[in-house]
């Protein structure tokens, strides 16, 4: 499936330029929907390179928590992102299935909320107080991550755009599509929510159902893995 397919009906060429308000987390969110994780991995690798080069303070702030794996789980997407903040060898991995045993902490919430959080546009405490964000496991590394990202005060999209030059296909194509997507959603997060996310965010019932579904899938996958099929 082509990455550009997913934005059908939303991309309107010729619209006026804007400062893209969206980080790569969002771009990936948009890009991820129809794709297998392996295809997205190069983009995450690139994002991490940008962070390492231009915002070393993020990893520096996470130094004490390098061995703790955090699962960032947008509840309205079929993927989660695993972050291993080890400053020497940080990793950001897209995963379809995540075993609770392999992560130290999970941050779970609507994509829109996670993005706003990553960009420092909303207050993480406030989000949690209002129950839009669920934190499980090791709260310390989650707090460290939140503080590190918030403290960087960065414009990841600009950085990423400039960093994508040397990229080969398909990551480049994918990133282009994602960037186009971001540019197209110019009426802001609300449009995005309406068009992509809102249907999936229907409160606890749907979330619980999805968790149950995921658990079943994980179980199946584990079984398969034990039989040597995965």
């Amino acid at each position: 499936m082509m990455a550009s397919d997913m934005m059908e009906g939303q991309y309107r060429p010729g619209a006026k330029p804007m400062t893209p308000p969206f980080s790569p987390v969002l771009l990936l969110g948009l890009a991820l929907k129809p794709l297998r994780p392996a295809l997205l991995q190069p983009l995450f690798d690139a994002m991490l390179r940008v962070v390492r080069r231009q915002h070393p303070d993020i990893l520096e702030r996470l130094e004490a928590y390098g061995d703790r794996v955090v699962c960032i789980d947008p509840i309205d997407l079929p993927f989660a992102i695993l972050l291993e903040p080890n400053p020497a060898e940080p990793r950001l991995t897209v995963r379809r299935f995540v075993d609770a045993d392999e992560v130290h902490a999970t941050i779970r919430g609507p994509l829109e909320t996670l993005i706003a959080l990553a960009e420092g546009k909303v207050d993480g405490d406030a989000l949690f107080f209002s129950r839009q964000l669920v934190i499980e496991g090791d709260t310390e590394v989650v707090v460290a991550l939140r503080n590190a990202i918030d403290g960087a005060g960065i414009d990841l999209i600009a950085d990423l755009t400039s960093a994508l030059g040397p990229f080969a296909n398909p990551a480049r194509r994918l990133a282009d599509a994602a960037l186009e997507a971001a540019h197209s959603v110019r009426s802001g997060i609300e449009t995005l929510r309406q068009s992509l996310i809102a249907p999936a965010v229907q409160g606890a019932a749907s979330r619980d159902a999805r968790i149950a579904e995921l658990e079943a899938e994980v179980k199946a996958l584990r079984k398969a893995s034990r039989r040597g099929h995965a």
Binding site: G120, V122, D123, D125, A126, D150, G153
Partner: peptide, 10 residues
């Protein structure tokens, strides 16, 4: 001091 910059700004 432990809250984000969104909080601080507001």
């Amino acid at each position: 001091r432990q809250r984000g910059r969104a909080y601080v700004a507001a």
